[in-house]
Design a protein around this nucleic acid. Structure first.
Lengths: 336, 336
DNA sequence: AGCAACGATTTGAACGATCAAATCATCGCG
DNA sequence: CGCGATGATTTGATCGTTCAAATCGTTGCT
């Protein structure tokens, strides 16, 4: 009984105007007279009309869809950072009338082939990439195709000039290190990852330069391991026992958890405690009372979406540079 | 230079057949002769043709899109379970040619209004719901609209007959409790949530019935608190000090972490250790060496997608019952 | 009065696919 | 040899929207 989905024609009939006028009310309101506009608006709400995106897309070649890869769950990722980022992007995108499509991929090549598929089949408007790294082929591919995209993470290594948003890891570890210096510590150690990863090197640099600036020689005060709690614990043992380190800054919460394990162990043997600061403010950090560096993820996500939508609205300034570096902040808890 | 996106007509011209034949090769291969089929296939791959989903959708009213809500990040959620579930759903859906759309919502009412929008604008094929609870209005709404959906989580309370997939929490805590019984413990405590949440009551029941079956009276051996590490620690203190509990089963890893904190503290004071078993196998559990009950998330996701696609392929058996209860397994680590 | 100019609105065509019906070709059989 | 049946393929119409061009109605100016 008339329960059909209303189309633009239904609305037009109801408001006694033509299809195109309804379309104009929606897409170019200034073209239609005030009273007609109101009449159409009324008809739209009465009927509960919603434009059919597929039909619109067929004509305009715009899907109002952005896509993001979901990182697979990996053992050494205490994080959930990227999941929080995806959530934040989705939320921001919705404010601009965009929806978010997620997909999975096993590696960069796979991800690129998915891009291709999504572009051909769904005409995605834009992509948001995460986990940028040295010699990232994804960005060069997208650039060649002329697809709008923003990366969450700097283009490490190459001087690639695309749009990106990132968090200043160096500033994060600097803040952590300064806090420990202020508390009177000098031999501040760093638990980091192997040299070569952009993010890891950046975080290490923040600790190193701050320490040097304070007149402390960082040599021998840091480690470079995989991102596991076990490695964190072993590193802490090594630095404290062998190098008399009296405080620790870590490249991740996962490493910091390991260090905390060592501290608890040492305390239980009657030893002294030792401040530890992590990185990422993962849920674990809150649970364990770990002081940590928190990334402004919501802001990062909002900025990514802002950049994309501003570009999609006026594709003129494709040559303009848009790079945003956000500053993380310290979340102080019991551990340091 | 001919760099236009190929359409079905382009392919048809290349293979010297009509549009419809190409369409048939794609959607009903049996209708077209073997040699023509091959010729068309060749043209498709040569041109790199991909059907335009929007155009197809306009005609068929099927989008090949399923939608899921992304839960907001909350403090007392050590989990990332749902994020892993979303990832697994996406992966499974891709195998069937479906893509996953994610969205955010603040509460059930908001979620329902998003459903409505997605159905009208995007013609979503199906939904996967998470976080089912008592008096869930979302399922009744979807049912009334006749939209295909599956819930990850049982319809608690109401005898609503929709399709669902869930993990047997009771079996999980039973396994945990039995393991502790086998190790010789009798006064096994339970750290749980307030009575009234379906999931929480289910997990509690597994512990309680197992204990009774072993001839132990569970009275006084359990707590009911919010899902935070602090509450977990306080509860552990209470149960051990006041009720001489000698092992702990927990409704979540978050609570278990708190309990572990208490154990470490007690050990450091020269007290005895105490086995603790968590629930969910969150990344923290791995990092802290927490024995925990792991949900088969990939399997759950795959089952949800299977149910949906089988329904979408032949909507006849809408009345058939499809409920799947999966059994979790224990991941044994140092803590218990 | 006549006509240009402009704003508001309508009309026809198109986007790229599938559906339903029509056409063509082949075969079996009386 | 003709005719119905069957299978393979093609043709025309259509999904719901927007674009481009046409039309209608006012107004201003010579």
């Amino acid at each position: 009984m008339g329960d059909e989905r209303p189309t633009i024609t239904t609305v037009a009939a109801r408001a006694n105007v033509s299809r195109q006028t309804v379309s104009n009310v929606l897409n170019a309101p200034h073209r239609v007279q005030a009273d007609t506009r109101e009449r159409v608006q009324a008809a739209i709400t009465e009927l509960g009309y919603r434009p059919h995106r597929a039909a619109r897309q067929l004509r305009t070649h715009r899907s109002n869809l952005i896509a993001m890869r979901m990182e697979p769950f990996s053992e050494n990722r205490t994080g959930s950072i990227l999941d929080r980022f995806v959530h934040a992007v989705t939320e921001s995108a919705e404010r601009y009338g965009f929806r978010t499509l997620v997909f999975t991929a096993t590696d960069d090549a796979d991800e690129i082939s998915t891009y291709s598929d999504l572009l051909n089949s769904y005409e995605l408007d834009a992509f948001i990439l995460t986990g940028t790294h040295h010699r990232d082929r994804r960005t060069t591919w997208l650039r060649k195709q002329g697809v709008p995209f923003v990366t969450f993470g700097r283009p490490w290594g190459v001087r690639a000039k695309h749009w990106w948003v990132d968090v200043d890891g160096k500033a994060g570890t600097r803040a952590a290190t300064e806090r420990l210096l202020d508390a009177g510590h000098r031999r501040i150690g760093f638990l980091g990852w192997p040299i070569g990863s952009g993010v890891g090197d950046d975080r290490r640099a923040g600790w190193e330069t701050t320490l040097r600036a304070a007149g402390v020689d960082p040599t021998g005060l840091s480690t470079a391991t995989e991102n596991t709690a076990a490695d964190g614990q072993a590193s802490a043992v090594e630095l404290v026992r062998r190098h008399a380190v009296d405080a620790l800054v870590c490249a991740s919460d996962t490493l910091a958890i390991g260090a905390l394990g060592f501290v608890a162990d040492q305390v239980s043997r009657g030893g002294s405690t030792l401040p530890v600061i992590g990185f990422d403010d993962s849920p674990v950090a809150a649970a364990l009372g770990l002081t940590t560096v928190a990334q402004p993820l919501r802001e990062a996500a909002a900025t990514c979406v802002d950049l994309l939508t501003s570009f999609l609205d006026r594709p003129g300034d494709g040559e303009a540079q848009h790079q945003v570096l956000l500053t993380p902040h310290l979340v102080v808890r019991q551990s340091g």
